[in-house]
């Protein structure tokens, strides 16, 4: 394992006029590490995720990414072409609503194979084989390869979205409430799957969730956000078992006891 962080975040701030989106967030993300960002809605966690993933331009601060060539690059200085290339090769983004991350009118196979085609793969047979392989890895029967996501259940769509993101072997995956809107039993299965994949592939991931159970299951480390600020961070087990901030204590007691 490399000893250098994959992502170095320093003083990241996003203002909406006078209102704070997120303020002065700093952290390093290490290869193979899963970081959960938790908080209530409006706490700034989604804003932070959008800034980290370059979907939103930060007001100040920096995000440096360890490129495959070993150099660190300031993400806001990437050209549009570099940024888009990064997003479809080295990164993944799993949306809460699968319809935002999938092409709903295109077959599952094409959804999964698209990234390969985008980076120049030109053998239909190989693309199909890779798509089929990835469908099995996310527990979708390869016989469904020619079906459109419209015909899939919510859980299957979410797994399809994951396969679509992972086929190019990304090093960093962003997830925005990946289990939101799913039944509890489906959630558990999905979390299991994600945990397995993250482990097997040595992925780094940043997961935004309001659900502390998701954070507990997936993440090594977590950050608690309130009103745009990170109020507590640490190893997940430590934060959940021994929360220091009163707000975190409240979150933990109100949610985990249920």
């Amino acid at each position: 394992m490399s000893v250098e962080p994959l992502l170095k975040v320093n003083g990241l701030t996003k203002m909406y006029g006078a209102r704070i989106g997120c303020a002065d967030v700093s952290f390093d993300l290490w290869p193979g590490e899963v970081l959960a960002i938790v908080g209530e809605s409006g706490s700034g966690k989604t804003t932070l995720l959008s800034c980290l993933s370059t979907r939103l331009e930060a007001t100040s601060g920096s995000v440096e990414y360890h490129m495959r060539d070993g150099a660190y690059r300031e993400l806001s200085r990437l050209t549009e072409a570099e940024r888009r290339f990064l997003m479809r090769t080295d990164w993944g983004f799993v949306h809460q609503n699968p319809a935002d991350g999938l092409r709903m009118t295109v077959s599952a196979g094409a959804n999964v194979g698209e990234r390969l085609m985008a980076i120049g793969h030109r053998r239909y047979g190989e693309i199909r084989e890779a798509a089929s392989d990835w469908l099995s890895r996310v527990e979708i029967s390869p016989t469904r390869i020619d079906d459109q996501p419209r015909a899939f259940s919510g859980g299957m769509r979410q797994r399809l979205q994951i396969a679509r993101n992972l086929i190019t072997g990304p090093r960093l995956v962003f997830m925005d409430e990946p289990t939101g809107g799913l039944d509890v039993s489906v959630q558990a299965r999905l979390l299991d799957l994600v945990r397995g994949l993250v482990h097997d592939l040595g992925l780094s991931a940043i997961v935004v969730t309001h659900d502390l159970a998701v954070a507990r299951l997936l993440s090594h480390r977590m950050m608690v956000m309130k009103d745009g600020h990170v109020i507590e961070q640490g190893l997940t087990d430590r934060v959940l078992d021994d929360p220091r901030e009163p707000y975190t204590q409240l979150l933990v007691s109100s949610i985990l006891q249920v």
């Binding site: 888009r84 479809r88 077959s107 094409a110 085609m117 985008a118 980076i119």
Partner: peptide, 21 residues
């Protein structure tokens, strides 16, 4: 933008769908 960045993956998605179907 797609032309400027040579993002033509979508074009092959269409051809892929043709063959699959």
């Amino acid at each position: 933008k797609m032309h400027a960045l040579s993002e033509y993956g979508l074009m092959h998605v269409k051809l892929y769908e043709d063959i699959a179907r």
